[in-house]
């Protein structure tokens, strides 16, 4: 258990982590037609899915203390995302014969320049189908996605544990877990939609130039999470001290 003030700071930190993680997760709506690099859905929805998976994983270890909760949240979320990436790649490669290739890197517009995969060194140029912006999730994109999901899962688990600690003195344990879960999911959804305004529906993760506009996401999520955290703090204090009832 953590004290309420620390829990408030944890909610803010978790909210910011959740917001920032969206920049790392490769997603693109046109990915569904193999016309862009990334998983075939909007970045916000994908991050929200990964975050919810993380919260479910975190709920299993809620009695084991803060560190196991954060680790299991992060790992659960990363597992969900990496399995999605693997299955997406299998379908794209063997279903429609499109090799995983980063469109931004192939066009020389990646964060570090050059047309090669940063980690494996595989050449990307020439593998992009004409008229598309890459397809599938090549290695660097998958690594970026895994990293982002670790951050998002950890952020969701932080919020989950903080709300659980705050509400536990007031209500029964199983109710506290349910309430903490739905509030953590709410904080996740609030923060993961804000970056979508910056990303405009498509990102390739940390090797996409859009990562440079992350400071805007950071500030927005910091302010939003602070307001939400203060509200949760005030409300839980009221409930626990029993001023109203």
């Amino acid at each position: 258990m953590v004290d309420p003030v620390t829990a408030t700071i944890m909610i803010i930190a978790g909210g910011v982590l959740v917001g920032v993680c969206v920049h790392f997760i490769p997603a693109s709506a046109t990915g569904a037609m193999a016309a862009a690099t990334g998983i075939a859905t909007g970045p916000s929805m994908l991050s929200a899915g990964a975050g919810l998976a993380g919260i479910y994983a975190a709920a299993y270890s809620i009695d084991s203390g803060l560190a196991p909760v954060i680790v299991s949240g992060a790992v659960g979320s990363a597992l969900m995302l990496l399995i999605t990436i693997l299955c997406g790649n299998i379908m794209l490669a063997f279903g429609i014969g499109a090799p995983p290739v980063s469109g931004q890197t192939a066009a020389g517009k990646s964060t570090f320049g050059g047309t090669k995969d940063i980690i494996t060194g595989f050449e990307q140029e020439g593998y992009t189908s004409p008229g598309t912006d890459g397809h599938g999730m090549p290695f660097q994109t998958a690594v970026s996605g895994g990293f982002g999901a670790l951050m998002g899962g950890a952020g969701g688990a932080l919020v989950f544990y903080a709300v659980y600690s705050m509400t536990l003195p007031g209500i029964a344990t199983e109710n506290a877990v349910t309430l903490a879960g739905i509030v953590a999911a709410g904080v996740f959804l609030i923060n993961s939609v804000l970056p979508a305004y910056v990303l405009v529906g498509k990102t390739e993760g940390m090797f996409d130039m859009k990562i440079r506009s992350m400071h805007r996401t950071f500030i927005s999520c910091l302010v939003t999470s602070s307001i939400v955290a203060c509200v949760i703090y005030a409300v839980c204090e009221l409930a626990v001290s029993g001023v109203i009832e």
């Binding site: 916000s44 609030i190 939609v193 979508a196 305004y197």
Partner: peptide, 10 residues
Amino acid sequence: GTGNASIGYW
């Protein structure tokens, strides 16, 4: 910049 679904969820 985000879908109708995202804004509804948010």
